[in-house]
Each structure stands twice: as C-alpha cells, then as structure tokens.
Design a binder for these strands. Structure first.
Lengths: 201, 201
DNA sequence: ACCTGACCATGACAGGTGTCACGGCCGGCA
DNA sequence: TGCCGGCCGTGACACCTGTCATGGTCAGGT
C-alpha cells in the first residue's frame, strides 16, 4: 500500500482527490491538510510514502512546504500539484526536491500514475511544461524588482510602494522601470501580469 | 438514482469529483465536460437531473451556460460551483436560474448534500456568502465601464484600450475615472482588482 | 414635453509615471 | 587592488493618467 498525504486548501477538491485515490487498490490516503503549515507536522505523525502538495495554499507556500518536508522526512517523496503550469513553479519545485509535478488540467489517470511512479523513485514531469520551463528560463528579476512588482500587484501608486518598502520614490520607479524592461512590457500592470504568468513572483 | 452532469475545466478535479460523487449510492455521474460550450449539448444527450457547473471555464462561462441550460432543459436543476466566493457570482448564478451555489472551500459532504437537496427542488446557498452578496449589492458599474475595466486588466495603455474598443482616448479615460470613483479606489489597477473581487467583471 | 441617466467626445490641467544620466555604497571576484 | 554588478538615491524630462467642465445624442420614465 502506498501511503499518501494530501495538501490542498480547497476542501472540496481535497476530499474529491482523496476519494479518487482511495478507489485505487494500492493507494491509501492517510492524512489531509488544508494549509502549508500543517504539512510537516502531519507528515511526522503519519509517515506517508508520498506527499501530494498544492502550490496555492494559505500560510506556507506549497513549494516551501516541499522544501521543509524534504529536510524533515527525506524518505518522503513529493509531488507538487498546481492549477497553473507556470514555468517558474516547475523549476522551483524541482529545486525544492520534488520528484513529481502535475498540472490540474491533466487527466485523472495521470495523477494516480504519478503517485505510483514517484513512489518507485522515478521523476514525473509533464514534457510540454518542462520544455516551456527551459525556454522561459530562470527569473531575470533581481530580489528588489520582484518585491516591488509583488507590492505593485494590488494597484497602489509609486508613493504607496515607496512607503511600504521604506524606499525613495525614485528608487521604486527605477526598479519598476528595470522590471518593465526585463519583462518586455510597457506598463507596470503588464509587467506584473507577465511576471506572474512566468512564475517569477 | 440522481443523474449528474459535471462541468469543470480542470480534468483532474473533474475526475476526482466524479469519483467522490460516484461513491454515493444514490448518485450517478452520467456525463463530464470540460468547457461551457459542451454543457447544453451533453445535457440534451444524457438528460441529467442535476448539472454541476464550474464558473471558470474556457469558451462559454459557467454562469451563461447555466442560463442557456435553463432554457434548453428547464427541468434540469443547476448547481454552480466555484473557487472564489465572489458576491457577484452568486447573484448572477441566481439570476441565471441556478438552484444551488457551492464554494470549493466547502467540506465535501456539503456538495453531495447540495446535490440531493437541489434534486429535491430546494435552494442551497452558503448563508455567509448570501449575506456578503446582499451587503455588497449589485454592480454599480455600467456596461461600458465594465468593458473598459475588463480590457484594462491585462495592463495596456489608454490608447490601447481606446483602439481595441473603437473609442476616443478621452472617453476611455472618463469611463476609467468613473469606475475608479465607483469602486472607491485611486488607480485603475486597484479598480480592476476590487471589481474582480466583487465579481463585477 | 420634461427630466434623468448612460453614452460619447473635446479640451485643459495637475499630478503621477517611465526613462535616462549621474553618483555613491557595498560585496564578490579575478 | 581594481573591476563589476546589484542596490539606493537625486534630478530632470517627456509622456501618460485621472479629474473636471462642457456639450452633444439618445432611450426611458414623470
């Protein structure tokens, strides 16, 4: 029996995934959590063979949860499961020590297949997404630029960002300008959108 | 047996939901589709008792699909199921003739319960969300303002919007200004965000 | 007929924004 | 040691934006 831990913030899909995986004869869902913070704790308790982690979760991110889990229980294989096939997510998941990466658009059989393969120690990655990830490459943004874009996401003025980050207005404008240039866009909103789509946030 | 049609763009959660509902003795999933355009067609073929529609779908919106379905098969009860509990979604779903409204954060039992209740002809709505919907009220935006905000979402300049909508630059600025005023924000990006959160888009 | 409100447009203006040039501070690296 | 690149700041400039006043058309309601 493959013992699986499930982490997803949406209770409905979490329960549904559990039901689906439970139908398989060789798979058993031994724990379910709804936030990234509970992952390590629950894993320590139930000792799962495979952890299936969503990226978008309240509290700790699914990707950082994967990294933490890799430290706490090195023997536990990790699959990262996400709604969005952002190239950056894949590379970050791999860097965090995940063995599998599944998009929620994928057919259901692919997930149970991924669980089995990852349990056997194999890597499971969508080839299309892997190609995109290589093409898109790593984030060209520096830490500051990322931070500025992150704050700019909810649509404040430059002064707002400057106050929030304890910087000068001009500096914020410079970082924004640089980020706009690197993303190949013409406005800050467009830069935010593109950076988000690439998973550079 | 309650015959259910499932519509969700994410194949994984669609399959998982089907597996979960299939576990119930009195529920049978008779069709699954991945876009809003296929809903009516599939429903005509399988004649389901209940249709479970996601809001976010490629092609036709889940809400408009609900309205179309209500016309094509008036006897078919509709549950709208969504990731985001936007107040505007609820009111639009109700206007479209949906009997149930379930958020994906809800516990799994609530969904199967909703299916049974809706099949019996009862309304199923999250009371918290209903309160929010009433508090937030209907969209204060006019059609044009909504359209302009929609285009402004991906971050182009005023001229871009004007060209896309075949309007004058000044007119676009006026609509944006008005939308900014109505949403109580100070920038167009903030207005877009707020309008989106309220489901006014 | 009158008024209201949505829609479109123009023009003008203050303030915000994106860009550039310049300079200084630091840590890493040959 | 010098060089480089990221980071922070200033100042200036052209341009874009958000706001306002004004005026016109057109549908709907009194």
């Amino acid at each position: 029996m493959i013992r699986v831990l499930l982490a997803d913030d949406q209770a409905l899909v979490r329960g549904a995934l559990a039901a689906m995986l439970g139908l398989e004869a060789d798979i058993e869902v031994v724990a379910q959590v709804g936030s990234g913070d509970e992952v390590v704790e629950a894993a320590r308790r139930v000792r799962p063979d495979v952890a299936l982690l969503d990226v978008q979760m309240p509290g700790k991110d699914g990707l950082t949860a994967a990294a933490d889990l890799k430290v706490a229980l090195p023997g536990c294989r990790v699959i990262v499961c996400t709604t969005f096939g952002r190239p950056g997510y894949l590379s970050r998941a791999m860097a965090a020590g995940a063995l599998g990466f599944v998009v929620k658009d994928a057919p259901p059989e692919q997930l149970v297949d991924a669980v089995r393969r990852v349990h056997a120690g194999l890597r499971v990655v969508d080839p299309v997404l892997a190609a995109e990830s290589l093409a898109s490459g790593a984030s060209p943004l520096t830490d500051r630029e990322r931070e500025v874009l992150l704050r700019a996401r909810d649509g404040g003025t430059v002064s707002d960002l400057a106050k929030a980050l304890h910087l000068s207005d001009g500096t914020v404008r410079n970082h924004l300008s640089s980020a706009i240039g690197k993303t190949g866009s013409r406005t800050r909103a467009e830069a935010v959108r593109l950076a988000e789509e690439h998973g550079w946030l």
